[in-house]
């Protein structure tokens, strides 16, 4: 008995394996039957498909919705005989590479050939999209969860003390990234990553009279895109980051006076007091450079010093 069962299972397995590689053969005389007919048997798919964008956008509307058959082929023979090989189905292999049926319509994604984001090249479109669903962009799950499934370390970065508000739901990965690869060539060459930041932070575009060269070069020299421990998404906290390229202010060598900054009353105005200590000038100069050099992205307003050629970016 068990041998018979085994044989049957084996035969069934062989058949399934063999048949799975046979392409659908839709008879030439098959006709369109309409999506309602399809839904009569495939009710679960039809329910999910009710508000699917494909249902209306590829329906070839002529008094009857034929959205199902736009992809699966004319269905009369399949409906009459119930034979699954009389209708087109899409296996993983079918979606893969140049036979990908999605690209019949979505040819506007040349990145399917030219892009570099792997899921749709390797796993087919269904790695990320559920073609019959009514979800946003037909995604299999919400965008952040979908991306974080593979990019675990990015999820952790978005939870760092300083981060773009992706986990809060106020931004999406696709606000910055093109998931189908580099389809946009709106911004050219070296400028692209800077331009991507300026899409939202356009007030830092310039060009400025007084420039900070790294801000022209690449935002990522000083900033991290996803998250950072340092404030303002800086790669490291100030002053370390600034000191990587600049010398410390030479006034940091000044020994501080121990006592009140001004005896009361101050000769220069009210409320300019406070206590000074031996290391006070180091605390002034080596805690946070942008407390004085506030305009690190560039400025049109001159700093005060003539011999410094107004370049201090303090205004």
């Amino acid at each position: 008995m068990s041998k018979q069962l085994m044989s049957m299972f084996l035969a069934a397995f062989v058949c399934v394996v063999f048949m799975s590689h046979i392409s659908a053969k839709i008879p030439d005389d098959a006709t369109y039957i309409g999506s309602e007919t399809c839904g009569a048997c495939h009710d679960d798919v039809a329910e999910a498909f009710r508000y699917n964008v494909h249902r209306v956008s590829i329906s070839a509307w002529d008094g009857e919705n034929i959205a199902c058959e736009s992809c699966h082929g004319r269905g009369s023979a399949h409906a009459d005989e119930g034979d699954p090989y009389l209708i087109k189905t899409f296996s993983e292999e079918y979606e893969y590479g140049e036979d990908n049926p999605c690209l019949d319509c979505h040819e506007g994604y040349p990145s399917a050939y030219l892009g570099d984001h792997h899921p749709h090249i390797e796993e087919g479109c269904s790695g990320c999209h559920q073609v019959h669903s009514d979800t946003e962009n037909l995604l299999v799950k919400s965008e952040d969860k979908l991306c974080f499934d593979c990019h675990i370390e990015k999820m952790a970065e978005f939870r760092m003390p300083s981060h773009h508000p992706v986990t809060e739901g106020f931004m999406n990965c696709t606000d910055c990234h093109a998931p189908h690869g580099k389809k946009s060539v709106q911004f050219v060459g070296m400028m692209s990553s800077r331009e991507r930041c300026l899409g939202c932070h356009a007030e830092k575009q310039g060009p400025y009279i007084f420039e900070h060269a790294p801000a022209n070069e690449d935002c990522m020299i000083c900033h991290k895109a996803h998250g950072s421990v340092a404030d303002n998404l800086l790669t490291q906290s100030e002053p370390f980051l600034c000191l990587s390229c600049h010398a410390a202010h030479f006034h940091s060598t000044i020994t501080g006076y121990t006592g009140s900054v001004y005896d009361s009353p101050s000769p220069v105005g009210p409320d300019r007091g406070g206590q000074s200590g031996i290391h006070s000038f180091k605390k002034v100069m080596l805690t946070k450079c942008t407390q004085c050099h506030t305009q690190v992205h560039g400025s049109d307003l001159p700093a005060q010093s003539v011999s410094g050629q107004a370049k201090g970016m303090t205004r």
């Binding site: 001004y262 409320d271 300019r272 007091g273």
Partner: peptide
């Protein structure tokens, strides 16, 4: 709060000098 300092021109005797940093 770190922006408060006055120089000591003679550190040995803690003699205050003219360079200061203040904040408001």
């Amino acid at each position: 709060e770190n922006m408060t300092a006055r120089e000591a021109v003679d550190p040995e005797h803690n003699t205050p000098g003219g360079k200061t940093t203040t904040h408001q």
